[in-house]
Amino acid sequence: MDAIVENLALPQPDFEVAWNTIKVDAGVKERLVAQSLLSLQLRQHYSFEAMPMHGLIVLSGPPGTGKTTLARGLANEVGKAVGKARYIQLDAHGLGSSSLGKSQKEVSKIFQQTIPEFAVLGPTIVLLDEVETLAADRQRMSLEANPIDAHRATDAALAGIDLLCRKHRNTLLIATTNYPKAVDRALLSRADWIEDIGPPNAEARKEIILDTLALLAKKWPKVEGLKSHVAAYIHASEGMDGRRLRKAIAAAAAISIETAKDLNKLRPEHVIETLKRAASQPDIQENAA
């Protein structure tokens, strides 16, 4: 059970709060909930052969766009819609092993034993975070690692997903990936829906900025006045992901030791300068590639 990092009954108040803090383009959240509920419903009424739904939703996009938080919130929304559900988060890295054959056995156990044990008790939603670690593209595997074991682990994951969709139709898998090109294409082909979560647009950035300033203003009331310059902040934050944007708004207070000690002294030009500097920093994902 080491691969299970969270095992909770849904709904969870904290998940709902987190869901509301993620700002994405209009319609994304509703589409994700609708797709998830549709997948669960169709699998209750049709055989897999007639309606090939795997119960797999994939959230893809660069780091910092809130995919994991969005996935947890999505699980919570589905849990509320069905009445109650069990939430399991798997650590894909915890399933890896340098011992030949061990990864395959661990992955098989998760899909053929662990998840089914929860599923027999009721609806079960499983988060496969960083799924590229669990189901790496078999055609791109490096010979430096353990390609045979990794290949078998991917095979086991695919077989496990196929087993769940047929025998445990009250399961829903939500997978996230920062690097969709590293995910085995056979897994992506099994997804009932793939949602690309990109950097927030201008309206979403506005919501993130106002939300962050509102939080700071609870402690330092004069921060509230910074909201009147939101248009300039939106312009300066073009291309930033939600995580970096929230960090940059807060980091503006580090413009000097004086403002760091008292955020009431923070001025609009401090925020704009910090946002421009943060937006011009090299993209982390590009460097990683």
Rank of each mutant, 00 (worst) to 15 (best):
V24T: 12
L8A: 00
P123F: 13
I174K: 00
Q113C: 11
K218G: 13
E6P: 03
A150C: 03
K219I: 04
E207R: 08
G96I: 07
K105N: 10
A186K: 10
D262A: 11
P268D: 02
P123I: 13
K219P: 03
Q113A: 14
R166D: 02
D155V: 13
T274K: 14
P63F: 05
L70G: 04
R169E: 02
N76Y: 01
W220H: 13
H270Q: 11
G66Y: 05
H151Y: 13
T69P: 01
Q89G: 12
L10M: 01
A85L: 10
L100R: 11
F15H: 08
N178C: 02
H270P: 05
T114Y: 03
A252Q: 10
R185K: 13
Q112Y: 10
Q281F: 09
T177A: 00
A145T: 10
T176S: 04
R152L: 14
L42H: 04
Q104L: 11
R31V: 04
A250C: 06
D155M: 12
A289C: 09
A254P: 00
E16P: 01
A260H: 05
R277A: 07
E49V: 15
D192P: 11
V126G: 04
K167T: 02
K222M: 11
A75Y: 03
K67L: 07
A236H: 09
L38R: 12
S97C: 07
K23I: 01
A85C: 10
D211E: 14
E49T: 15
L188A: 08
K167Q: 10
T69S: 11
L100A: 14
D129H: 00
G239R: 06
I284G: 00
P200L: 03
P200K: 01
A186F: 10
Q113S: 14
K105H: 09
K222I: 03
M141P: 00
K80W: 00
A288M: 15
V28E: 03
A204H: 01
Q285S: 11
K265F: 10
E195S: 14
A50M: 05
V5F: 07
S97I: 08
G83H: 00
E30M: 05
I125K: 01
N201K: 10
N170L: 09
M53E: 08
D184S: 01
H93L: 13
P116W: 08
T171W: 05
V5P: 15
I209G: 06
A157G: 06
L173Q: 02
A260M: 14
A236L: 11
P147Q: 06
A252V: 13
K29W: 06
G198F: 05
S237G: 08
L215K: 05
T176A: 02
A254F: 15
A232C: 02
H45I: 10
F118D: 01
W220C: 00
E77V: 02
G225F: 02
L143N: 10
H45V: 12
S98G: 14
A182I: 00
F118L: 06
I284A: 04
E269Q: 15
D14W: 04
S36Y: 02
P200H: 04
P180N: 02
K265W: 05
